[in-house]
Design a binder for these strands. Structure first.
Lengths: 215, 215, 215, 215
DNA sequence: TATGAATGAGCCTTCATTCAT
DNA sequence: AATGAATGAAGGCTCATTCAT
């Protein structure tokens, strides 16, 4: 088991927990392993976070906060940039949060994990982080549809789901994709290529989507 | 904890394990709970499956087998039906396997779970079930692209991922979607509507996708 | 795990149990392993012997009976043969029962095992088998002492223990002796050589033992 | 089940394990019983020793260490004392380690148990404790033979086995001896008397052993 | 007479948590 | 602010035994 020393005990715990929980899951990750990696005492978790779940909540907050700060959904683009470019930034940042390496590689994994198997923390996360992202994506979809659809329409929501689904897919099925297509790598170039594909696929779809069915 | 009696001990165990493991995950699901729901003794798991993992493997096999039998990817369509109809059948059956209720509502959940956090069983599953599905979807994509792309090209593979990602998305983010869009229900009509959207979105994309970039 | 078929179920069980229990001990030997080796059903033990302990009792009886029949303590010698020859026969047969290979190699092991960690069966075994052996050895000791000591004297008993102790020693410390003296083998020649040593050592001792202390 | 409190948890566990394992064997002794006697929690074994086997290894080390410290094989005799006295000291200390009561009555039992049914720990024990004892006894035998035999000769080794076998015998067959000779007690006087007998028997044998056979 | 399936008690181990320092 | 030791509740697994056939 790897060890490292950086920052104070509390942030070392967060970091170690991020690595281990994002890899093995909340249940399978043990407090002892986390503390060993953080070079802290077993009791430190309870001192700083109350219990294991408290650590997880703090960790989630950190994950969303850090992930979105490191790779914001506009990637620094001006708000009035063309919708196509903003969609690419959204998709690219999405992929980078999930697949990017580096010090906080676990941020995206934890975010995805929580969305799939939510805990009590979900409400807060949805309100604070997910809703703005969702709104942004629906606006982009509405802009690109350019057929009178408003961001709050179901049509825009469905299209937003189509985009988000494509972004998550590789992360959710990594092992299978590695087997089906061993050539594909999630390095910087691979991520960029995938982001381009998803953006093009989505723009192509949105630009030519036939008028809505009548409910 | 719910209880039920149906079939012999072995299939009762499979069923109970399916419900519990698909809900709580492999690690968090306990043999004791499974046996209690199956109204079987704790030792029955060992007797019939060797150990907890053996039960899980049998369960996975059952999940794929049953799921694909109940909702085959062509939904009974003739092989020479129009590509659009076949894509709709593919998407619709995909959603039904994941969201459909009834006796084996856990099949899709287990399949998705295994794809995301694979065990040793993955190799077999990919070879036996996933690869044929992937090939079918790439053929459909190539047909619809109709620009000379062959099913074995990366371009077709990326497009297939775009379709599959849309199909999985609602299942992977159910709790969030329930909050963001409480109106959407995964009943028969909701599933059909979503299948229509994904099919139209994908066809629209494929039919108008610009020519591939030159690497 | 080796398997064999010989005789009816009951004797196959005895034989399998003899092999396994003599090797792993009563507690560590499992009914399942025994039945597997005997190619019998798990329930066969309970049908024929009531329970695991019943099997063990029958086994012990068989072990003593067979062991002493195969290698009787006089090895066929005439009762009026010289004491030296009768002592050699006693020692040699003792060693052969413990170390001899062949179909019932477990007889001696089980006998020794029961003597060290006795069960309820001990009373019967002592009365039926051990007491006659002990009496014989004390008679031999008294004959060889030839100083007026009677077989029932403590002096004869102590000397009998000295002989019996030498006989058991190699069996009780086999692994250690293998390490301390790797050259020594318990094949036919090695057993005979050891029997000669023990006999000579004991005769030499008995023939020259100083008169008893005064209590 | 007896209980007692003495020392810290770790040594209480060692002591309790010594009593129980020496009586019932490793397999039959349960961690629960040991912890109950030591008035410690079940998890304490895991914390201090890793697992049941770790406890057993620590126990063995302690048994040999303590037993040889309490009753060293020379019993404080000068190295240049007569061979007869040194042999008596060897035999007497041997018996005391196996039969002596008091706080660590289980040391000898454990040593004998490990020698008969060795575990992985045997190698270490042989190298650290048994080999020196064996060498000492072979030197004594060679001295007493006084016929040119060297300590490293097989002849000396066989004689050493004859002595060691006599020492172990009463311990290995206690229950049977209790029945055959109820008068014999393993109190201080009984042990001393037995030590005298074994010493005299062995000296008498060694002093008069006929020359070796020619192979 | 014999069997495959099922049972319940119990074992070793693991883990999050707490306590005394 | 931090630690090493200790705790109790489960968890997975094993085993001798029994049941229905």
């Amino acid at each position: 088991m790897e060890r490292f020393v950086a920052g104070d005990t509390k942030s070392r715990l967060i970091d170690a927990a991020g690595r281990i929980i994002s890899e093995k899951g909340f249940k399978a990750a043990t407090v002892r392993d986390i503390c060993r990696m953080a070079e802290a005492n077993v009791a430190a978790v309870h001192y700083h976070f109350g219990d294991k779940e408290g650590l997880y909540k703090a960790l989630l907050e950190e994950a969303f906060e850090l992930g979105l700060k490191r790779y914001p959904p506009d990637l620094g683009l001006a708000p009035n940039a063309p919708a196509e470019e903003r969609l690419f930034a959204f998709v690219h940042s999405f992929l980078l949060r999930m697949l990017g390496g580096g010090r906080y590689a676990w941020c995206g994994k934890l975010m995805a994990m929580e969305l799939h198997e939510p805990t009590q923390a979900l409400d807060h996360l949805v309100a604070r982080y997910i809703t703005p992202l969702s709104r942004l994506l629906r606006h982009l979809a509405a802009d690109l549809l350019n057929d009178g659809t408003r961001p709050e329409d179901d049509r825009a929501f469905f299209c937003a789901m189509s985009v988000a689904g494509q972004c998550q897919h590789i992360f959710r099925n990594r092992a299978v994709i590695d087997k089906l297509c061993p050539d594909f790598k999630t390095d910087e170039a691979g991520i960029a290529a995938l982001a381009r594909h998803i953006t093009e696929f989505s723009i192509s779809a949105l630009r030519h989507l036939p008028p809505a069915h009548k409910a």
